[in-house]
Design a protein around this nucleic acid. Sequence first.
DNA 1: CATTATCCATAACCTATGTTAAGTGAGCGC
DNA 2: GCGCTCACTTAACATAGGTTATGGATAATG
Lengths: 250, 250
Amino acid sequence: MALLDTVVMRGLSNQGALSTEDKAFLLELELNPRHMSASEVLWLENGQADLFCVVKEGWGYSYRNLKNGSKQILKFYLPGDIIGIRDFGFTRRLASAAMINDGVIYPFSYQQLFELFGRSSLAVGIMATAMRQQALLSERLVYLGKYAAHEQLAHFLYEIYLRLKRIGAVEDNSFLMPLTQELIGDALGMSPVHVSRTFSMLREEGLVIRDRQHVKLPDPEALARLVEFNDSYIDEFLPSAFSELLRATP
Amino acid sequence: MALLDTVVMRGLSNQGALSTEDKAFLLELELNPRHMSASEVLWLENGQADLFCVVKEGWGYSYRNLKNGSKQILKFYLPGDIIGIRDFGFTRRLASAAMINDGVIYPFSYQQLFELFGRSSLAVGIMATAMRQQALLSERLVYLGKYAAHEQLAHFLYEIYLRLKRIGAVEDNSFLMPLTQELIGDALGMSPVHVSRTFSMLREEGLVIRDRQHVKLPDPEALARLVEFNDSYIDEFLPSAFSELLRATP
DNA sequence: CATTATCCATAACCTATGTTAAGTGAGCGC
DNA sequence: GCGCTCACTTAACATAGGTTATGGATAATG
């Protein structure tokens, strides 16, 4: 029962929180264990997201390949860890995953996970929202790790731009951003002075016009190109991933 | 119906995925809106984690205060965002949260969220696992943002140490770590050369002994002090947070 | 209107970390 | 045993970004 070997589950089980039904359900969930060899890829970025795995033996990791040829590792997975719930709520993988050394994993389908949430698509929605937040966090981590200040800031502004656009708070490529440069610095891990420098840089390149809280991106697409913005993680119409599942489970 | 104003929920609703029961449940969930003024704190790190909020108006942010006096912002929250599900599954807050400007928020209790998951503490377990992953991610982000290389590496090693200890893979303060310095560099956003330099530094200080994959931490507590490791996010016996809830909802 | 506090821009200087390169030792195939 | 390759170490040099400081807007306050 691989899922039971998960740290949290083991805790729940010890406390008697898992009902007999729960345990029966877990057994039902179980697919075949899969033996993996070192460096074997579990899935690639943009691949179909339809399952997650419990790592039984060996180490794995998830990572994003970057435009400059390097990669940013998001997380190492040790035995007992669950790999791949990150993408629950998305149709495609946001990051690749691979093994480091030989190991054994137990795959579970999202479909099964979905059934687990029972009748409430509300619960699914909450879960999806949480995963979407995590996606934003991961993306920021990637930029913190490997990109230069002007790329980070461009990425940050573009993200805000997209998120505001979703809720109709962008007009004529302009929006209100009630942040001081100090706050932005605290978010991007850079000194306020350098935030200012970097804003000046972007201004000179005609990418960002800013007057206090008023921000205008004259050419959002240019910004997006600069940072190779992968908007699937923010713009994807999440629930579509569920509508299929909903159809499958009447 | 603030929760319905959430991006994901709106999507679900549009697609007719929400049943009448779901919607009734949502209505029931609703507490009173709360008017917040600029800079007002929603909660502090280590405070009790018992609710989350939907931001209706204004901007908010979550952040961690760092030992060096600065802070790392984890996320900005815009209208329609949910703030505070991050801590679902923990008893205490892992990060503080505050408003940036004036606004309105709708609080919801974790208790209600818990009921939403219905009879399945399995679902709760999955959710908690996901949140725990996010906590690790946040912690890494904090270190990427504001700490020097040797602090980052020390933190990384201590995290691995704790995680391996949980699953009984540490003996006599030693463990097997099948990572190259290049992989570690890809995780910490630093060049492999600097990983080597930094390992040398930690070795000279007697904090880390390493021979290829064999790692020994002669004095784990010293490492923990060096990085002010907040182990609540990794070591907390998560399900205890639920046992109360379970008792409350027979 | 005067005063003060914020926020921001720019400059000069300093340091941590990236880059490139060369050398060492362990493992492994031949 | 010989010559690979791979992982690591150390050194010399380059640079992005931190730090400190100063001045100038703009907004808040009396």
